[in-house]
Design a protein around this nucleic acid. Structure first.
Lengths: 136, 136
DNA sequence: ATTGCTGCAAAGACTTTGCAGTTGA
DNA sequence: TCAACTGCAAAGTCTTTGCAGCAAT
């Protein structure tokens, strides 16, 4: 249940927060903007102010419920933080976002940071791609 | 000479463009915002409108003179495109930006895209790091 | 002489904030 | 009850644009 997750995170359980969390849970695998969440909730007859959505999304990020992406530099996109970390590939034609993981890259990143005298805290990797003739 | 680079790129050689290009050339290795360029030019007694700087920076990116980064999702940062591609590491404490290259990661990226049926056009990789006890 | 470029100020997109009223524990 | 939360509208930040005048070929 969503409310439990909120309490765990130290957030008061309020209707807007529950609704936003439910929306994000129903959207696992998507990468949505504040506006997207707002519209989705409206469709479900839940009218929560856009400002509140922004506030809640930020809080959720702070407590680690979700991850923020700035793929293009324009709108921020969010996705529920899943147990399995992954990176993204964006098709320049369709705008489609494909997720992937690669242990080799992950390992190298840690190593590179260490080599330079740093500790890796996180990373952001986005591949910009286009479809080729040969399918997946 | 800067003006030659502009002609090559198909851009009319104008004072603002030459000044911005010179500024970027004097800043190799930095990652500056439009505002940064604006202020730097002002210090050098060159008063070019901020809107013009934005326009020029965009044009320079289009013709491949420089690269745009959206490290944090806030301001866009630019750097002269150098012959040698590199990625970035940002220290969360100091904000310092360290450049690096890694052939293994580069190769994997290409492979991953291909495996999924895509062609790699470009990528954006940023490591978020913090200093450790052991120096570089 | 043209055509494109620049400056200014206004507008735009996205996001945050102040404040008064509401709600959850 | 009382602190925390929400909604609204206003404000903020970064960036783009319209338009009239200026400049490069």
């Amino acid at each position: 249940m969503s409310s439990h997750k909120l309490k765990e995170a130290g957030l008061k359980v309020t209707l807007p927060r529950v609704k936003v969390l439910e929306a994000m849970e129903s959207l696992v695998g998507s990468h949505v903007s504040a506006e997207d969440v707002y519209k989705l909730l409206l469709e479900n007859k839940t009218d929560i102010g856009l400002a509140t959505i922004y506030r809640i999304l930020n809080q959720f990020e702070e407590v680690g419920i979700l991850t923020r992406h700035n793929f293009d530099g324009a709108v921020a996109r969010f996705e529920l933080k899943s147990s399995n970390h992954h990176d993204h590939m964006i098709c320049t034609n369709s705008g489609e976002i494909i997720e992937f993981t690669d242990p080799i890259i992950e390992a190298r990143q840690k190593e590179i940071a260490r080599e330079k005298g740093y500790e890796l805290l996180g990373h952001s990797l986005v591949l910009h791609v286009k479809r080729t003739g040969s399918p997946a």
